[in-house]
Structure formats: C-alpha cells, structure tokens
Design a binder for these strands. Structure first.
Length: 293
DNA sequence: CGCATCCCCTGCCTGC
DNA sequence: TGCAGGCAGGGGATGC
C-alpha cells in the first residue's frame, strides 16, 4: 500500500501528463472496486478538463474544470500506468509495468493528448468518488482526517496533544488517520525506530501530566517529518514485484532500517540488538527491543 | 468516545 | 507437485 510518499510520487508523475488535458473518454471496466463507482461515473467524466492534481493524506485529488473533484484512493495495490503511443511510462514509483496483470486494469482514462492513464488494482481495496470541491471538507472520507505530517501543524507540542490520554499502543495511534493522516505501516515502523521509541508503549506516554511533550515526543515529531521527506525525495518505496525497464522507480526501500528486516542487526550505532517482528492489530511491526523503549 | 477484532480481495511464498 | 496457511504498503464496520 502506498503511503503518503508513494501517493505523492504518483501525483508528481501524473501531473505533467494530466494537467490541462481533457478526459476524452473514460473506460470503467467493472461496477465496483472497494465501493460501487458513482452513478454513470465514466460518462460524467467524459469531456471534462483536469485543472489540477493534489493530494490529501493518501488520497489523490484530481480537480476538474467544472468544480468537481475526482477523489481516488489506491488501497493496498492500486497503481497507475501511463502510456503514450503504445509505450509505458512511469508515473512514479508505485506501479509496475513489465509484470502488470492486465486483468486488473479497472479504469482507463483516454486523454486529449493521446496518452492513456490506466488504474490497475489487484486487490480492489482502492476506490474513486466524485465530490464537489466546496464539499470536500465535509465529505465523510475527508472530514475526519487528521493533520498532514509534512505540513506546518506537526511539531512536538501538537504530537503530544494528539497522543495525550490515549491507552492504545503508540504504533496504533500513529496509524490512526484521524490523528495524523498519511502514515502507514512502513513509515510508522521507520519513524519509531529513528526516535528510539517502542511501538508497544502507550501513546499517552508521549505527553507529561500537564500535556507537555516528552523528549521522546520531540524526537518522534522530527523523525516522522524526516523519514517522510527522505522517502518523497527518493520517489517512495518500491516493494516486491517491481519490474520496469524505463523510467523512474522509488528506491527508499533501500533506506529501511527495520521494515521487513526481521533478524537483521539493528542499525542504530552501538546497539547490539536484532530486529524483531510482532503483530499489532493484525499488522506486522518491526522494531528493536534493545534501543526502542 | 476509545479501542480491538474481523473483514474486504487477489496473489505469492512457505512448509508439509 | 499440490495444497493449506500466512502474509501483503489500506481502512471500514462492528462490538464491547
């Protein structure tokens, strides 16, 4: 699943191809992904012009010229493939090409430039909806989203305030999109390791009795911003089956310190620990019991 | 309200 | 080789 850095990478890849282009024709090849598509989805999009490409948390926002927004979420396996004159071009890191199973091409956008943008999603946890721009803020999908971790709001004070009083494990609270929106399993594990904080400690332990940030909260606020910024700069992380001869691909996976590194030595200087895997809320957590407290 | 559990879906990898 | 089970970057629905 794409997390914030992967979605941002996809946004940057799609922008030069889609911005200013008309959606000449849209092919919708099945009735639903995670949810049913909106009524007459493909027909409604036809002829409209892309006025902007944005991102909120893990959502891609395609601004249309008539004030509506095409909101897209990639779920766990959603990806885009750009093709021009029959040849594939990458929209960023989060996709594959050579190995792509075309049975899972669910939506094809035919652009006025002649290019096509194809949405492929094996597991179909992704979805697309149309929302008037003026209602974006109150739409159920967006209304309850927390702060953008790379925006100006996330600092130690705010982090402590968000975590204060919570009994949930710190990892679960960081993955809660209503608090901070955009973090997922990989970057939470990575940020916690950088901040030397255990994923199992109570989220509330990042705030003092008076609600002030602890030293750990200060380290974590910095670590979150740092790891996300580095991942965006690297074009996100490319996992598993990527195979693509032309174009860019993300390489942040080479920068993982703990994610998917069970049994590896802890990379913290002078730490003699080993990376452990445990399951929290049904998801794998990777961390070092020795230096993360 | 906060928190935990289960579920959606397909494919790949492991171990028996 | 086949097959069962576990696992995968997400988050919604439900129940306590």
């Amino acid at each position: 699943m794409p997390e914030l850095p992967e979605v941002e990478t996809v946004r940057r890849g799609l922008e030069p191809v889609m911005l200013g282009a008309a959606l000449v024709k849209v092919e919708q090849r099945r009735a639903d992904l995670r949810f049913p598509f909106p009524e007459r989805f493909a027909e409604r999009l036809a002829g409209r012009v892309v006025a902007g490409l944005g991102r909120r948390a893990k959502y891609l926002l395609v601004d249309l010229d008539d004030g509506e927004v095409l909101v897209m979420h990639l779920g766990m396996s959603g990806r885009f493939l750009i093709e021009m004159n029959g040849s594939g071009v990458t929209p960023g890191s989060y996709h594959q090409d050579a190995g792509q199973d075309r049975r899972h091409d669910h939506v094809v956008f035919h652009l006025s430039s002649g290019a096509t943008v194809t949405y492929n999603d094996t597991r179909r946890f992704g979805f697309m909806v149309l929302v008037p721009r003026t209602e974006l803020g109150v739409h159920p999908l967006m209304a309850k989203l927390g702060i953008e971790p790379l925006g100006n709001e996330l600092d130690a004070d705010r982090l402590a305030q968000l975590m204060a009083g919570r009994a949930a494990p710190l990892k679960a609270a960081l993955m809660d999109q209503r608090l901070i929106a955009g973090l997922g399993n990989i970057y939470v594990c990575e940020a916690l390791h950088r901040a030397r904080l255990s994923p199992t400690r109570r989220a509330g332990s990042l705030a003092t009795a008076t609600g002030r940030p602890t030293e750990g909260a200060r380290r974590l606020a910095i670590a979150i911003r740092e790891v996300l910024a580095e991942a965006v700069a690297a074009g996100g992380s490319t996992l598993r089956d990527y195979a693509q001869p032309n174009g860019s691909l993300g390489y942040f996976q080479h920068g993982f310190r703990v994610y998917d590194r069970e049994h590896a030595p802890c990379p913290t200087p002078n730490c003699r620990g080993t990376i452990t895997r445990l399951v929290q809320a049904g998801r794998s957590t990777f961390y070092c019991r020795s230096c993360q407290r």
